[in-house]
Design a binder for these strands. Structure first.
Length: 669
DNA sequence: CTGCCTCGAGTTCG
DNA sequence: CTCGAGGCAG
């Protein structure tokens, strides 16, 4: 190929590759396939190899070309990267807004809201349309030169459109690692036996500090540019328009930036993202609010190192450190001894945490938790707090190791731990602790569903000696209840009525309500299908029970053992005498079954119905609702605030449905 | 025996 | 929601 035509083709290829690179990595909307892109890139590489004199540093082939360095050189920032003052609640935000209004003498001002990305701040300088330097934030004054590594981040342009950008300018942004990429990378590292990164932020920091740019290039880094650091040409007079200019120049901006007029809109923005943060493929730890006009920013100035024209509004921390005051033990319905932590009250994610479950003795030992330790408590996304780990640096040596009590804390019976099992059990079936838990279970939703009978009333029944087993409930009278604390005639009457109404619960609910070990709602349904009455079930031998699909030897043995106990037989007998003896009814399947053979996972909050109702809908139309995403899942229905299940579904490539699509499928729309 | 998948049990705060 | 454990297919 003649030299001139080669030069022409190279220029054309660079434009085309740059364009598709931008579509793929910045706009996130590719126009051509990966294979087509690779072909173009390869052609460019070959031509450049044939004509080395035509090579330029901004060519898309030159992202990873540099040789490893020994150390990073310091880079002084011409304009310091400022830190931001933090606001932690709405009051502080309101106060900031009021202060700013006052300083501006009541002049109205627009604000730009941005997500505060959990990554690393960088400053990237361009000269004559070419990327020349990339540096970390460092202390704000001086950072490290990581140009070669930043060049490998595909969403950072190596050059900007000629003639449109200032001769020299600096953009600032946050380099981060997407969660999906982080997980993929950690999986690979695990397979390769390499140490894992604790979180995407550490992984991104590690990637940026690789001395060999080839290592950086293999990590899934990305960037959101959030401001112009400085420029030697005129740029727009406010932040919002500047961001738009930067997007035009090919920089990747966060799509959720928003221009707001009133402080209420800012609060809405914040509240919106507290809720939706889990939906993003990257971590955010708050929102940043900036006064839009540069002129007003200049008038507001700075105090110390913090600009007065911007504030970072932090999300409530999802982790906190507090003191583990004590480890106590509860007795569950099955007799299991459940250790839990008493914590020095601490605010985690906006609520005060005083207690957290510790699961079992092994778990405590694995984490090496000791009474008196300072511990990290987490409440990330989920509602339930967890004790994550002890803070070993703060140990004094006075902490005490925990051992499971040898006797039941309630009835003092010796506890048993079967070989191979994680839990300790109190085997005394008439232990009062178990009775209260069993009673609570019996009356609960999904079982006998007795309205108005909660834990405190159940406890009162037991303490007053009115109830010794679940059958006693059906002998209670209005007069007896009125004798109890805080029980008037009306509420007593309601409770008695609710107890009477529970006699007509279906058989499977009653089986579930009995609280037989290993028998939950699902297994109870299977049993009710196979044995049409309580009588039939109680007479079944273990072998017969194990015939039921879904019931194996363990469950069968547990059921047989339950009905083998004299005490339980008496309770069953008395329940029957009191009219609690439902028969399994074979419900004819009716209506169309458009979802037959399909399985659904409902995740997040739906607008038009509860999750239970949605699961019931699936079942009634012939489908199977699932609790967890597996590769056999046909669809995941995604509501608001979906979390780990959504992630899993995406990983496995399970088709996702919006609530609307789901309703259409179910023929409810 | 191993590796799914499913089910059961316990769970915090307001 | 998470862990542990049971059931079952390969």
């Amino acid at each position: 190929m003649a030299k001139t035509s080669a030069a022409g083709r190279i220029a054309e290829l660079r434009r085309t590759v740059d364009y598709h690179n931008h579509r793929y990595f910045v706009v996130d909307d590719p126009e051509i396939s990966d294979a087509e892109y690779d072909l173009l890139l390869r052609e460019l590489q070959e031509l450049e190899a044939e004509h080395p004199e035509l090579q330029t540093p901004d060519s898309p082939t030159q992202r990873v070309g540099a040789t490893p360095v020994d150390a990073f050189q310091p880079v002084r920032h011409p304009v310091a990267l400022l830190s931001l003052a933090n606001a932690f609640d709405l009051d502080e935000l309101t106060a900031w807004h009021a202060r700013t209004s006052k300083l501006l003498e009541g002049e109205p001002f627009g604000m730009v809201c941005e997500l505060k990305i959990d990554g690393l701040a960088v400053a990237i300088t361009y000269e004559d349309g070419m990327l020349v330097t990339g540096a970390t934030r460092g202390d704000g004054e001086t950072g490290e030169n990581v140009t070669q590594n930043l060049r490998t981040v595909r969403s950072i342009p190596l050059s900007t459109p000629p003639g449109q950008s200032p001769r020299r300018f600096e953009v600032r942004g946050e380099v981060y690692m997407p969660r999906s990429g982080f997980e993929r990378m950690n999986r690979q590292r695990a397979e390769a036996g390499q140490p894992l990164f604790a979180n995407p932020r550490n992984a991104a920091a590690g990637a940026l500090r690789q001395l060999d740019p080839k290592s950086t290039a293999s990590r899934p880094l990305d960037i959101f540019v959030y401001s112009l650091g400085w420029s030697d040409d005129a740029m727009p007079g406010n932040h919002w328009d500047t961001l738009k200019r930067l997007a035009d120049l090919g920089f990747k901006l966060n799509p959720h930036n928003r221009l707001c007029g009133a402080v209420e809109e800012v609060e809405d923005y914040f509240r919106e993202w507290v809720e939706k943060r889990e939906e993003l493929d990257y971590g955010i730890d708050g929102v940043v609010i900036k006064v839009n006009s540069f002129e007003l920013q200049a008038r507001l100035g700075e105090v110390g190192r913090d600009p007065r024209w911007a504030i970072a509004y932090k999300f409530p921390a999802t982790q906190a450190v507090t003191r583990l005051l004590d480890i106590r033990v509860n007795v569950g319905r099955t007799g299991s001894l459940n250790p839990y932590a008493i914590l020095e009250p601490v605010n985690v994610g906006g609520v005060t945490v005083k207690m957290a479950t510790l699961h079992n003795e092994d778990d405590i030992r694995r984490k090496d938790l000791r009474v008196g330790d300072w511990v990290v408590v987490e409440r990330a996304g989920e509602v339930i707090p967890q004790v994550v780990e002890p803070v070993l640096d703060r140990r004094t040596g006075k902490e005490k190791k925990f051992t499971m009590p040898r006797r039941c804390p309630v009835c003092k019976t010796k506890v048993v731990r079967l070989p191979g099992e994680a839990m300790h059990y109190c085997v005394n079936t008439s232990c009062p602790a178990q009775l209260i838990q069993l009673l609570k279970h019996f009356v609960g939703r999904g079982m006998m569903d007795i309205d108005g009978l909660g834990e405190s009333l159940a406890l009162a029944f037991i303490e007053a000696g009115l109830v010794r087993d679940v059958a006693d409930l059906y002998d209670l009278t209005v007069e007896q209840l009125q004798g109890l604390e805080r029980m008037g005639e009306k509420s007593s009457r309601n409770v008695i009525d609710a107890i009477a109404a529970s006699k007509s619960r279906p058989l499977d609910r009653l089986i579930f309500a009995l609280g037989i070990r290993h028998v939950g709602g699902e297994t109870a349904k299977l049993l009710a299908e196979a044995f049409p009455s309580l009588d039939a079930l109680s007479k079944a031998e273990a072998e017969e029970l194990a015939e039921v699909p879904g019931v194996g030897p363990k469950i069968a043995e547990s059921i047989a053992a339950y009905f083998g106990e004299e005490r339980n037989r008496r309770v069953i007998e008395r329940l029957k005498q009191r009219g609690v003896d439902p028969r399994h009814e074979v419900r004819a399947t009716e209506g169309p079954q458009p979802l037959a053979g399909l399985s659904f996972v409902i995740t997040g909050k739906l607008d038009s119905m509860s999750r239970q109702a949605a699961e019931e809908t699936v079942r009634s139309l012939g489908g199977t609702p699932q609790g967890n995403v597996t590769k056999k899942t046909s669809y995941a229905v995604v509501g608001a605030g979906a979390g780990s299940k959504l992630q899993k579904a995406q990983q496995l490539g399970i088709p996702l449905l919006t609530e609307r699509q789901f309703l259409e499928m179910a023929g409810r729309e």
